[in-house]
Design a protein around this nucleic acid. Structure first.
Lengths: 245, 245
DNA sequence: CGAGCGATTGATTTCTTTCAATATCGGTGG
DNA sequence: CCACCGATATTGAAAGAAATCAATCGCTCG
């Protein structure tokens, strides 16, 4: 079992954040909870020292203890296929939950690693389950979050038959929407992952990702420099690579 | 809103099935519930007349009322993309739940249609949520089922970078495992979907599916006739189409 | 028995990967 | 501060996988 940064929590200064003051609360578990309900949830949540880039929050096979809410930074989750090859299954941005695939399991099924310096809130899974029993709003929200995650995986799956161009365009627009939901710019953002991770996630090679970025840039659909992108025409972007018909 | 077969339930003869006697109970929601808890769940569940092939159980946009447990037959779920093109996001076999993407929503996000004559149990969503509050075992099981669904979508996603050959092989082996879990043959079964639906789901054309079936047959990895398949060598099947390295 | 849909097979085209060669970025140490 | 290094990104050329276009076959159902 891997060492867990949370174990060292005692030695770190407490980080003064709470659900009450959290700007992400409206996107997270506390949605629709009242003051005292939030306090009950709050009591269960642990904060911890920041994770550095490349630090693992979760390793497949580790005993399940927490689900995590991302406060800042970014993560990728991945599976190791039978040949030991990493397959990225998702990226996580602030306000999103990590470890939703672990309910009712003994061990985590997937890995999650920081793509940047990150802060997470750790929510003990069994306490969350208990609280979901006695707080209807939390139960509803939890079920909704799991259900939404299923839908989002389905949405992602719905691009399987599309061209690499369409999949990358949809990916960029998806990132844009997720930043926008948090009040950040929908047109201009910094991607926390590199080209190779994008390719791995979308099912294409790094070279193809790179070529498509160049193509989008040549078509004046985006500007980009390294991990910074600006989407110049989202509608046109989504039309790219469609069958001519 | 689409007409719902359940609405006509009153006029159909009651079908004498119950969670207690259901051979699928151990794979379904009642897992780990005691007698009286099952009764409470049971009271919420409606059975209904069989759905015929091609009948819709759920249409995207319909107001959410139930989640469904499949007793017999088979379903496919799909999304309609912005151009109105059907994208299949999953198949459902007996004991599996349909509509897990609908928790906390006003309207269903996806369509589900019978691939064969089918029987379902309809579970009112709000009642299920309530019961999950007061029955810890049901709550746990419900969370587990949602979480497992997420994991299964991730597993499926983890094949994006693989060849068509590998994806089809994995699909067949996955079907096999699902039949096997119900006590049916892992090596020999009838696929409820046609070639075009397999291709749609896996992100390849019907022609490619057909060619791969032929190739697998030529290699003596399977035998097949129409929708009937027999897997002759699952391990070898999973080795197909791997990069030579 | 014929019509029509689904499945199969073939030939060609297209897209993406693979292999290979730079180019660029970010960090480090002189 | 700048030069150098390794890692990441870009670009090009060739090969390969799957899609497309097209024809035929075989069922099933009126």
């Amino acid at each position: 079992m891997a060492e867990n940064p949370l174990d060292k929590m005692g030695s770190s200064p407490p980080l003064h954040i709470s659900c009450h003051g959290c700007s992400l609360a409206r996107l997270c578990l506390p949605v629709s909870l009242n003051e005292s309900e939030i306090n009950r949830l709050e009591d269960a949540i642990k904060r911890n020292r920041p994770l550095r880039k490349h630090e693992h929050l979760i390793r497949a096979g580790d005993p399940v203890q927490h689900v995590y809410a991302l406060r800042s930074g970014a993560f990728k989750s991945y599976l190791l296929n039978p040949d030991g090859v990493e397959q990225i299954i998702g990226f996580h941005l602030p306000s999103e939950l990590i470890g939703l695939d672990a309910f009712g399991r003994d061990c985590y099924p997937s890995y999650s690693v920081a793509l940047d310096t990150s802060l997470v809130c750790a929510i003990p899974l069994h306490q969350l389950e208990e609280l979901a029993g006695s707080i209807p709003g939390l139960r509803k929200q939890l079920l909704y979050i799991l259900s939404r995650e299923i839908h989002e995986e389905q949405e992602h799956h719905s691009h399987v038959r599309e061209s690499a161009e369409q999949r990358l365009a949809a990916f960029l627009v998806n990132l844009s929407a997720r930043y926008s939901k948090r009040g950040l710019s929908a047109s201009s953002f910094v991607m926390p992952m590199n080209r190779s991770e994008i390719g791995n996630y979308l099912g294409m090679t790094t070279e193809t990702v790179s070529r498509l970025f160049s193509r989008f840039r040549d078509l004046n659909l985006i500007t980009c420099r390294g991990h910074e992108v600006r989407l110049l025409d989202i509608q046109a972007l989504l039309q790219q690579g469609k069958p001519k018909a």
